[in-house]
């Protein structure tokens, strides 16, 4: 029998475990306390009828999920989440790249310009959002002043369910634009100059050069920004809370905001955590899809 051999192998594999644990624990403890345990706890709570206040609660099985999937508000929020995520992701990536392309060549004042464009990213979202509530004011807000000056009719912005989502998206894109730009700037600088020379001699136009050389060379950055922006959009809360509180009439209620309302306003923690679990699955699912798709278009 090979038992002793297996044992020895087992021993060899695990005899360093205490040492490894010693080094990993300082990082592992906060991860367990603040991340892994709460996730597990949330999943558990999603099968209960806890009301956030009572010390006791009952396990209700899949009831929370069933009522969630029967609730039109949930699908409305899911739709808003998709619109918000796509609405922030695409403009952030595209405009971030455009800004980076404009600023990649240094000119007088380009440093200051980069800093100004990046500054919203390092400013707290709550502060930004408060300023934007003034900008969006229907009477005398800068947004409407500009629209009127351009000859367009003023909008109701965050006060109307037609434009509230657009308003929140504009704030979010404006905030993350500089971040995308900084990443694209460094990616563009890393594309070897010789490639542009080779492609020029091969006869490519500017557009072809951009699509055939620049875009593929910076594709890892695009991929990274897509994942980060997507996760940020799924987790957006501050700007929605300050600007619209999910309204008017639920038009800016995303899944995360619905979670907040269910758990902390309606005290239905069981159903709130069920939404959270759906969100986790959604995030994981979207990330897996992106990673799979990236094998086709990301060139390392």
């Amino acid at each position: 029998m090979s038992t002793p051999k297996v044992k020895r192998k087992f021993k060899r594999r695990y005899d360093k475990l205490p040492t490894v644990l010693l080094f990993v624990l300082p990082a592992l403890i906060p991860l367990i306390v603040f991340w892994i345990y709460p996730i597990c706890r949330s999943v558990y709570l999603s099968f209960t009828n806890w009301d956030f206040i009572s010390p006791t609660y009952k396990i209700v099985g899949l009831k929370n999920y069933i009522s969630l999937f029967r609730n039109p508000r949930f699908f409305e929020a899911l739709g808003h989440t998709v619109v918000f995520t796509a609405g922030t992701l695409i403009p952030t990536i595209v405009l971030g790249l455009v800004l980076a392309l404009l600023l990649v060549r240094n000119f007088h004042g380009s440093g200051i310009l980069k800093f100004i464009l990046f500054s919203p990213w390092i400013t707290p979202t709550v502060a930004i959002s408060i300023v934007w509530t003034w900008i969006y004011k229907t009477d005398g807000g800068i947004a409407n002043t500009i629209l009127t000056a351009l000859g367009a009719s003023p909008l109701k912005w965050i006060s109307s369910s037609d434009t509230a989502m657009l308003s929140v998206i504009i704030v979010t894109v404006w905030k993350s634009l500089g971040y995308a730009m900084i990443f694209y700037l460094s990616a563009l600088e890393r594309v070897p100059g010789e490639l542009y020379e080779a492609v020029a001699l091969d006869g490519a136009s500017k557009w072809r050069t951009f699509f055939d050389i620049t875009l593929p060379c910076i594709s890892p950055t695009t991929f990274f920004l897509m994942i980060i922006t997507m996760v940020n959009s799924l987790q957006a809360y501050d700007q929605i809370q300050v600007l619209t509180q999910g309204g008017p009439s639920g038009s800016t209620r995303t899944l995360l905001y619905m979670y907040y309302q269910l758990g902390f306003q309606e005290f239905n923690m069981g159903q709130a955590t069920a939404v959270a679990v759906v969100m986790i699955l959604l995030t994981v699912g979207l990330s897996v899809i992106q990673f799979k798709a990236s094998e086709k278009w990301v060139h390392y």
Partner: peptide, 20 residues
């Protein structure tokens, strides 16, 4: 005249192959 219209090919020191 732009490089692409000179009908000249060049081999670069670092080859400059399109990596993707």
């Amino acid at each position: 005249v732009a490089p692409q219209h000179r009908d000249i090919a060049m081999v670069f020191q670092n080859y400059a192959l399109y990596p993707h």
